[in-house]
Write a protein that binds this DNA or RNA. Structure first.
Lengths: 159, 159
DNA sequence: TAAATTCCGACTGCTTTTCTCGGGTATGGC
DNA sequence: GCCATACCCGAGAAAAGCAGTCGGAATTTA
């Protein structure tokens, strides 16, 4: 899980789309103006979002983009995963963590980064576009509802 | 809270220091060799760690670096904050979030990033150097032992 | 004094990120 | 059929940050 401005731009744009499209396509130019992001850059982001199945496009005049799913079905983590290339969190041998054992001193931190990635993914998976639009990102207690449930299924390596 | 390889190097080096120093100074050259990090680069990182009060230095032959505090008193979050410049998670007006209200459409995501930063900081604050050295980063359940105790002091905004 | 070690600042090459440009292609309205 | 609108695409420029280098200075031990 990578955190860069690219992912943030994508989320900002998706929030804009979710809050302005009431079933109608929204042109990228409008989003670009409201969010102050260059149109060409947005096009690149939305190309990835489309390939990731998060938005649908309508070409021609009156066209634009639509959410592929309802805003409460679109998780923030999906958006970030769609636009950001996965990165290698450790400098271990590519592929399996076999190379780690060769130099165990270096990879004591391996589990730490992996678990941190899990934590980030867990949080961003618990927030939907609808949550952000309605400004319900977190409860007042600082604890996210529904986030306490321990992971049942093995979490995908966050990378 | 920024997450880059610089912070990871710093944590790797601090883990190395914590696990090899038994009260004696450890020379950076030794850490550099074990962790395969260039000496000069390590020097830059440790300069920041020293300014951050995380390590003490001993000059001259037989010198090196010592943890300023016990390894179970040194939190991973402190290390990363010491070496990584804070980044602005949002492109709002610097300082207060006043500028946000001018263009509220752009800053719907403000709370989201802030809370994400809190989540990351919360996790990294719950892990100490001692945890990593003893490979107890997380339990098999995915829940960290000893991490349940909520921080008493107010959490710094992660930025 | 000589050697080991931290300390310091500037600079460089490299990679990644961010952004721009110049075109294409589909589509609806006249 | 034209044309404006809007998505689509790839190449590359500009900027930023990372990782490393270099040369030296200060401090301490032996």
């Amino acid at each position: 899980m990578k955190l860069s401005t690219k992912g943030r731009y994508a989320v900002m744009a998706m929030v804009d789309l979710a809050s302005t499209s009431h079933g109608n396509p929204v042109a990228l130019a409008d989003i670009a103006e409201r969010q102050e992001i260059s149109l060409s850059y947005l096009e690149q982001l939305f190309a990835k979002l489309r390939r990731g199945g998060l938005v649908r496009s309508v070409r021609g005049p009156g066209g634009g983009y639509l959410l592929a799913h309802a805003s409460d079905q679109t998780r923030i983590s999906d958006i970030i995963l769609a636009v950001d290339e996965p990165i290698r969190a450790t400098r271990c041998a590519p592929g399996s963590p076999v190379g780690c054992r060769a130099n165990k001193a270096r990879c004591l931190t391996h589990d730490l980064w992996e678990e941190l990635g899990n934590q980030i993914h867990l949080y961003l998976s618990s927030v939907t576009l609808a949550n952000v639009v309605s400004r319900r990102v977190l409860g007042t207690s600082g604890v996210l509802e529904g986030a306490e449930a321990p992971l049942a299924e093995p979490m995908v390596a966050a990378q």
